[in-house]
């Protein structure tokens, strides 16, 4: 969706057109959901946050002014909502949910990390293992921030400048982390 198309949708939403919101939903729901899920590691909470986000967007349409980089704007809002959610529920044990088998199975984290640690020290064997990892598993070997950067850069097609603004990180650090993440994924057989 281009900036102009997005602005048109927002204008229609301002007038109460639900189909316009559905267009935005269809275009960005997968991307936003997976971003939130990556941060919060819990299906139900991610669904709640994304639902709330679209409701918020419906309300924001009234005051929306066209500009460049609507994707960065969307991701910034959803990220802030997720951080607020985490802060709000800081004392609650979110990790209880996160350690549920569903999460482990979803991300393939356990499998991948076990496989990697088992093969540590045996370089060739490790190479064989990583080359067999699925993309989900390969992604789970990255650090949280690296995953977010890959997500925003590759799936969201954001610029490094936009990412650095969203993550409140120097642009150099963002590019460095991106390169390091790409290097790790390359070891698993995935290329840009």
């Amino acid at each position: 969706m281009t900036d102009r198309q997005f602005w048109e949708c927002m204008s229609l939403m301002k007038q109460g057109d639900k189909n316009a919101l559905k267009d935005v939903y269809e275009a960005y729901m997968p991307y936003l959901y997976s971003y939130v899920f990556q941060m919060i590691k819990n299906k139900e909470n991610a669904e709640d946050i994304v639902s709330d986000f679209f409701l918020k967007l419906w309300g924001l349409a009234d005051a929306y002014e066209p500009g460049k980089g609507h994707k960065a704007w969307l991701i910034q809002i959803v990220r802030n909502m997720t951080i607020d959610f985490i802060r709000k529920h800081k004392r609650e044990d979110l990790t209880d949910f996160a350690t549920e088998d569903s999460y482990e199975e979803e991300r393939g984290y356990g499998k991948a990390s076990q496989a990697l640690s088992r093969e540590k020290g045996q370089h060739t064997a490790e190479e064989q293992v990583v080359s067999r990892l699925s993309f989900k598993e390969a992604l789970s070997t990255l650090k949280e921030t690296e995953q977010q950067i890959i997500h925003m850069k590759v799936a969201g097609e954001l610029t490094f400048k936009e990412i650095s603004k969203i993550l409140e990180m120097p642009i150099g650090t963002v590019t460095w982390k991106y390169q390091s993440a790409i290097k790790k994924l390359r070891r698993c057989g995935y290329y840009e």
Binding site: P30, Y33, V50, S51, F135, V154, L185, Y191, E192
Partner: peptide, 23 residues
């Protein structure tokens, strides 16, 4: 040699639930 972009898109699409009715 698999494309990160394609794989990530596939992964994202496969994970996404349908929340439209709820919204």
């Amino acid at each position: 040699n698999k494309s990160i972009k394609t794989e990530l898109d596939n992964l994202i699409n496969s994970q996404t639930p349908d929340l439209w009715d709820r919204i």
